[in-house]
């Protein structure tokens, strides 16, 4: 029963990892940008949630109404003000600039909120659970997982059924020709980053409600998100969800064997999949 429980809890945790990963996957798909600061942006969203909930004394999930647009706006400005200037054939500039951004965000958070761990308080939902077939399934993990499924479904719909998604795919295929269609790629990239950080906002709030966080929490979130993307296969959003679940299950099985092995076993599962299936389990795009 312990093992089944570990697999169920791991699957639900995988939803959170998919939320970490979805924004990363999205911007890689549109502009081949790997955002090293992605994890720190998730933590930034969590802190933003902290400030909003404290200032307006509201539930963190209600605070999403403010945090999502704020992060999206920040994403658009960040893309047009900084990141657009780094895009080109050379992979170094975007990598190093987002790396610098990561250090800046971490230390700015340290300055603003100190190194003390913080947590978002969502009330009763945090401890409530349902008994399903003898397993205690927490409402929070369940909501987290269903949110991840919903987010992936919405992103999938935007990508394949809307004019915005068509613009994303066109710019991703061929930037020059997309410009000839009247698409301003700088604007399209800005919108992609805005969407990515909107998802990041949701991920940040769930992170903050689930566990405590501090300014140095970001990099590990980036790595979990990255592992989910690679396990699932580049450019495949449903694959990313599957990747998150595999990572979550690997971690909770590891933790079941030895509490110290939780994170390590996730990394090892990732490396094994990388060795056996270098393009991930459900690849759709070349790296």
């Amino acid at each position: 029963m312990d093992w089944i429980n570990a697999i169920v809890q791991g699957t639900l945790l995988g939803g959170l990892y998919a939320l970490f990963a979805a924004g990363l996957s999205l911007i890689f798909g549109v502009m081949r940008l790997v955002n090293i600061a992605h994890g720190d942006l998730i933590v930034l969203a969590a802190y933003l949630g902290l400030t909003v909930t404290a200032a307006l004394s509201m539930n963190p999930f209600v605070a999403l109404i403010l945090v999502v647009p704020l992060m999206a706006g920040f994403g658009y400005v960040l893309q047009r003000g900084v990141l657009n200037w780094t895009l080109g054939d050379d992979i170094l500039p975007p990598l190093l600039v987002t790396f610098g951004l990561s250090v800046i965000i971490q230390n700015a958070l340290l300055e603003g909120y100190s190194a003390d761990p913080q947590k978002l308080n969502a009330g009763a939902i945090e401890v409530a659970s349902a008994n399903i077939g003898g397993l205690a399934v927490g409402y929070l993990p369940l909501v987290m997982f269903l949110t991840a499924v919903l987010v992936v479904a919405v992103l999938q719909w935007i990508f394949y059924a809307t004019a915005l998604g068509r613009a994303f795919r066109a710019v991703s295929d061929n930037q020059d020709i997309a410009q000839l269609m009247g698409l301003n790629r700088r604007h399209v990239f800005g919108l992609a980053m805005a969407l990515s950080l909107a998802v990041t906002a949701i991920a940040g709030i769930f992170l903050g409600v689930r566990t405590s966080f501090d300014p140095a929490t970001g990099p590990a979130r980036l790595i979990f998100g990255f592992e989910a993307v690679i396990i699932g296969g580049l450019g495949n959003l449903w694959g990313t969800l599957a990747g998150g679940v595999i990572l979550g299950v690997a971690q909770s099985i590891g933790a079941q064997i030895n509490p110290g092995w939780q994170i390590l076993s996730g990394h090892i599962a990732f490396l094994i999949i990388l060795a056996v299936r270098p393009r991930g389990l459900f690849p759709r795009m070349d790296g």
């Binding site: 940008l33 790595i223 690679i230 990394h267 090892i268 490396l271 990388l274």
Partner: peptide
């Protein structure tokens, strides 16, 4: 192992390796 990853994904792959060392 990590030469299977390209560009920026290579970068984060090297980070994962370092984390494995640290946790190990």
């Amino acid at each position: 192992l990590i030469f299977r990853l390209r560009g920026a994904y290579f970068a984060i792959g090297t980070w994962v390796i370092a984390e494995v060392f640290r946790l190990g």
